[in-house]
């Protein structure tokens, strides 16, 4: 039942996302889409993926979309909506996929190649060799630790890219004639009942936000503690550096959403955050290099200490922390840089 319904919901949301003209609604539907897909992950027992999806899909990317929306405009303009070439390409791709899935093995079949060839080795040896109860964490951090280094670098790259693009960007078309004025043909969308007011009345702020602020203040330490817990707990259950890092990052974002951007910057300055982005990856890469000096291959943790299993646990913990630092810092960067644009422009 649940296995049939959730994917169906997914399809409904996926199509609705594209059909809705109001961008904010679209983003909201997309956030529900993320929630649905997370349920699907849980249902498929992919707990680590689920926790990541929760943090990223429903959380960070929704916030990012909203920020960007606040910088642009929120209504998609009405167009003739069917594009024939796009349709052809899409149908072509669907055709190829259908053609290819004819002789794919049945799902959930325990005898398919992925379940019989490489992964049984991980399941058998993960605990013995790396000391990780969570096989996902063992693969992520050790067997395919190099991929994860790459993944962390991707995140750091995104942060650097944002900084490169946004910080102190000078040339703007100042006397730009907004296209909005001349464009006609705006769709009348039912959904847009609300016109965002650009400034809120200053006096009332305190009273209005009191619940939000109190709750957040109360929650903040828990969120951060929980983030740390997720980072460290990766060894035993779902979670790890990446998920924990996102949670830590989210805590600052929540803080900023509630207490204001300036306030948040006092808690976590831009400079410190820049430094953290780099240092996380450095910790990760550094542990790898350290292994070289102990005579192992790159990222071979078990040479670091006399007891290979313990060494492995320590090594993996180290890199999880590295990942956590970088990811947290990058999440904050994404938020800060996109929010800050006008401050510099």
């Amino acid at each position: 039942m649940i296995d049939v319904a959730i994917p169906l919901f997914l399809v409904v949301c996926g199509i609705a996302v594209l059909l809705v003209k109001d961008l904010m609604s679209s983003i909201m539907i997309f956030s529900v889409y993320s929630l649905l897909i997370a349920i699907e992950w849980v249902r498929l027992n992919a707990i680590d993926v689920a926790i990541t999806e929760a943090a990223v899909g429903a959380g960070i990317s929704t916030v990012l979309f909203m920020i960007i929306l606040s910088r642009t405009k929120s209504v998609e303009e009405c167009k003739k909506s069917i594009s024939i070439p796009a349709l052809l390409v899409a149908v072509g791709v669907a055709g190829v996929l259908l053609y290819g899935s004819v002789d794919l093995p049945n799902l959930r079949d325990p005898n398919i190649a992925p379940s019989t060839h490489v992964s049984p080795y991980y399941l058998e040896n993960a605990y013995k060799q790396t000391g990780q109860e969570n096989a996902v964490a063992a693969i992520l951090a050790s067997y395919r630790g190099y991929d994860t280094l790459g993944e962390t670098t991707v995140v750091a790259t995104a942060a650097f890219c944002l900084i490169l693009l946004l910080r102190g960007r000078r040339h703007t078309n100042k006397d730009l004639k907004k296209y909005e004025d001349t464009s006609i043909n705006k769709c009348t969308v039912k959904g847009v009942g609300i016109k965002p007011t650009k400034t809120s009345p200053p006096g009332s702020e305190q009273d209005k936000d009191i619940i939000k602020k109190t709750v957040t203040k109360f929650l903040m330490p828990f969120i951060q503690l929980f983030g740390l817990y997720v980072i460290v707990h990766g060894e035993l259950g779902p979670g790890g550096g990446f998920q924990g890092g996102v949670v830590l990052g989210v805590s600052i974002i929540v803080y900023s959403l509630v207490f204001g951007f300036k306030e948040a910057q006092q808690r976590m300055s831009v400079k410190a955050k820049d430094l953290l982005v780099s240092s996380g990856v450095l910790i990760y890469g550094g542990i790898g290099v350290l292994a070289l000096f102990f005579g192992g291959n790159y990222l071979q943790y078990n040479v670091l200490l006399p007891d290979p299993k313990f060494a492995s646990i320590i090594g993996i913990l180290g890199i999880e922390i590295g990942v956590g630092i970088t990811v947290a810092a990058v999440m904050i960067t994404l938020f800060y840089e996109t929010v800050r644009i006008d401050a510099n422009g």
């Binding site: 900084i163 820049d274 780099s278 450095l282 890469g285 790898g288 290099v289 070289l292 790159y298």
Partner: peptide
């Protein structure tokens, strides 16, 4: 270290890239 050259080939520039903004 010679036998680790393949790894260093990538790791050195990768870490250098991360350090670059700090330097």
């Amino acid at each position: 270290m010679i036998k680790h050259l393949p790894a260093l080939l990538i790791v050195i520039p990768l870490l250098a890239a991360i350090i670059t903004p700090i330097i």
